[in-house]
């Protein structure tokens, strides 16, 4: 009997060691340690043993069981580990394959420019005002010191709808409307973005529809030096700290004095190149001190109040900033064009 148990142990351990997978191992467990297994069978013959022999044989049988089940456990861990390894090996991927793209769109470049300018001036205490794109002649021209028959109206040939209503030719009517709303009291600090329309044939540098963004400050004691300082802050933030500005005389019916602002050319650093037409300067915007007639017409006492205004074209700024060479790109909306502006700067 003792020999038989030893024999069974050796036989079982051999099989455990040879087990190829968990199922086989389990079969071994069931066949050797189960209720109908050979060890149980052997122990059935214990009745024939003497009282002294019985406990000894019982202990031996337990030893054999423990030895087998211990080995099974060790083997099981081995096999499980191997199975995990096998699965991991099977799950290997090529990490260099492209990822799943996140679907994204982006701002139109003109919106990027306008929002950047809006935010810059909001930071300086301005609010954003908007107004109608179809305007009354009064707000578009007359309130801006451009009475009917004024030769400067030729400068901006416009799309009329009726004699008194037209597509606005600039965003300045928003200034006139805002000043009127303030009923002759200061301070006014606004920035006005929007679409404007002029009778131009569309080509690389002209568009019958384009954007404008204008600023206006009206208060007691607004000085031209304040305009210069404000524009300097704007130019440096918008185009880079190393850029210089230059104001030179110009003419707009709604400002007096009137100036145009140039910034130093980034491409050549001021020595002259094709971008700046050899001058070292690039024209960015028009500005000036609000004409007393404009103030008076909006209900301000021009003896007490002064103001400055400035206006620029987001298309031009985008063209300079990003090197876009044709204004029509902004309005044909080629996705290959739009995509290029999805990068946050």
């Amino acid at each position: 009997m003792q020999d038989r148990l030893k024999e069974l142990q050796a036989e079982a351990l051999e099989k455990v060691a040879a087990a190829a997978d968990l199922k086989e191992l389990n079969d071994i467990r069931v066949s050797y340690l189960g209720k109908k297994g050979p060890i149980t069978e052997v122990l059935k013959g214990m009745g024939k043993l003497s009282a002294e022999e019985r406990p000894m044989m019982g202990a031996l049988a337990n030893e054999v069981r423990d030895a087998i089940s211990g080995q099974i456990e060790v083997k099981q861990q081995e096999l499980e580990e191997a199975a995990v390894q096998k699965q991991l090996a099977a799950e290997q991927i090529d990490v260099t394959l492209p990822g799943r793209p996140v679907k994204t769109g982006s701002h139109h470049p003109l919106t990027s420019i306008i929002e950047e300018i809006e935010d810059l001036f909001i930071g300086m205490g301005y609010t954003v005002e908007e107004g109608p794109e179809v305007e009354k002649d009064y707000y578009n021209f007359e309130a801006l010191n451009l009475p009917k028959g004024h030769p400067a109206r030729d400068m901006q040939d416009s799309f009329y709808i009726t004699e008194e209503i037209l597509m606005r030719t600039h965003t300045s009517p928003v200034q006139a409307r805002t000043m009127e709303k303030h009923q002759g009291k200061g301070p006014v600090r606004i920035i006005c973005p929007g679409k404007v329309y002029r009778r131009d044939n569309d080509d690389a540098t002209h568009s019958h529809q384009f954007m404008q963004i204008e600023g206006l400050v009206v208060d007691e004691n607004v000085r031209m030096s304040d305009l210069k300082g404000t524009l300097q802050v704007f130019a440096k933030k918008m185009f880079g700290e190393d850029r210089e500005i230059r104001l030179r005389p110009s003419f707009f019916p709604f400002t007096e004095p009137s100036v145009e602002m140039d910034i130093s050319c980034k491409i050549c650093g001021g020595s002259g190149c094709s971008v700046c037409k050899g001058t070292g300067w690039i024209e960015i915007l028009g500005a000036g001190m609000v004409h007393p007639n404009v103030l008076e017409m909006a209900g301000y006492d021009s003896k007490k109040y002064t103001g400055f205004a400035f206006g620029m074209g987001p298309e031009r700024i985008a063209m300079l900033k990003y090197g876009v060479d044709d204004i029509r790109h902004f309005y044909t909306n080629d996705v290959r064009f739009l995509k290029q502006f999805s990068v946050e700067e």
């Binding site: 609010t127 200061g186 301070p187 600090r189 208060d219 300082g229 005389p249 100036v259």
Partner: peptide, 28 residues
């Protein structure tokens, strides 16, 4: 004033920022 300004030279104008009551800038 424009004649004085331009011949004095806009380069020679001081660079200042508006004084007076501050206004809170914001979007509607």
């Amino acid at each position: 004033i424009e004649e004085v300004g331009r011949l004095f030279g806009y380069d020679n104008l001081p660079t200042t920022l508006p004084i007076g009551a501050s206004t809170p800038g914001h979007l509607s």
